[in-house]
Amino acid sequence: MLNLNWFKRKGIFFIPTTWIGWMIFAIAIVYMVYVFIQIDSISHSVSDTMINFVFAVLVISAVYTLIAYLTSYKNKTSI
C-alpha cells in the first residue's frame, strides 16, 4: 500500500499538506464556483439556485473528503 500523506486531519476537516493536496483543494473550490455560475445562469429564483448549489456542494465535498481520507496521514495507535 502506498504511503500517501497529502492531507492532515484536524477534527472533522482535512488540511492539505503537500502541493498535490493544495491542487486538489483548489480544483474543488474552482469547480464549486463554476457549478454555481452554471446553476445561476439557468435558475429562475434565488431559492432554485441555492437548492441546486447546496446539493452540488455536498457532492463535491463528499468526493474531496473521500480523497483526503484515503490519502491522509493515519496515526498508528496501539492498544
Results as ranks from 00 to 15, higher is better:
Phe55Gln: 15
Leu4Trp: 05
Ile60Ala: 03
Ser45Gln: 07
Leu2Ser: 08
Ala56Met: 06
Ile27Glu: 00
Val59Asp: 02
Ala62Ile: 04
Val30Gly: 11
His44Gln: 15
Ser43Phe: 04
Arg9Asp: 02
Lys74Ala: 13
Asn52Lys: 11
Trp22Asp: 06
Phe25Ile: 11
Phe55Val: 15
Ile20Asp: 02
Thr71His: 05
Phe25Pro: 01
Ala68Arg: 00
Tyr31Ala: 10
Val46Asp: 05
Val30Ile: 11
Ala56Leu: 04
Phe13Ser: 12
Val57Glu: 03
Ile51Trp: 15
Thr77Arg: 13
Thr65Arg: 00
Val30Cys: 12
Ile24Asp: 02
Phe55Ser: 15
Val54Ala: 05
Asn52Tyr: 07
Met1Glu: 14
Phe36Pro: 00
Asp40Glu: 14
Gln38Met: 13
Ile29His: 12
Met32Glu: 10
Phe36Thr: 02
Ile12Ala: 10
Leu4Pro: 05
Ser43Cys: 06
Thr71Phe: 05
Gly21Phe: 03
Thr77Val: 12
Ile27Phe: 03
Thr77Ala: 09
Ile60Trp: 01
Phe13Thr: 10
Ile42Leu: 11
Ile20Gln: 03
Val33Asn: 13
Thr65His: 00
Ala56Phe: 03
Thr65Glu: 01
Trp6Gln: 00
Leu58Cys: 07
Tyr34Ala: 06
Ser43Ala: 12
Ile15Tyr: 04
Met50Val: 11
Ala62Cys: 08
Ala56Lys: 02
Thr77Trp: 09
Phe7Ile: 04
Lys10Asn: 09
Asp40Phe: 12
Ile29Leu: 12
Val30Asn: 08
Val46Met: 07
Arg9Trp: 04
Ile24Phe: 03
Lys10Cys: 04
Ser43Pro: 06
Lys76Gly: 08
Asn75Phe: 14
Val63Ser: 09
Thr71Asp: 04
Arg9His: 06
Leu66Pro: 01
Ser41Thr: 13
Thr71Met: 03
Lys74Val: 15
Ser61Glu: 07
Leu70Phe: 14
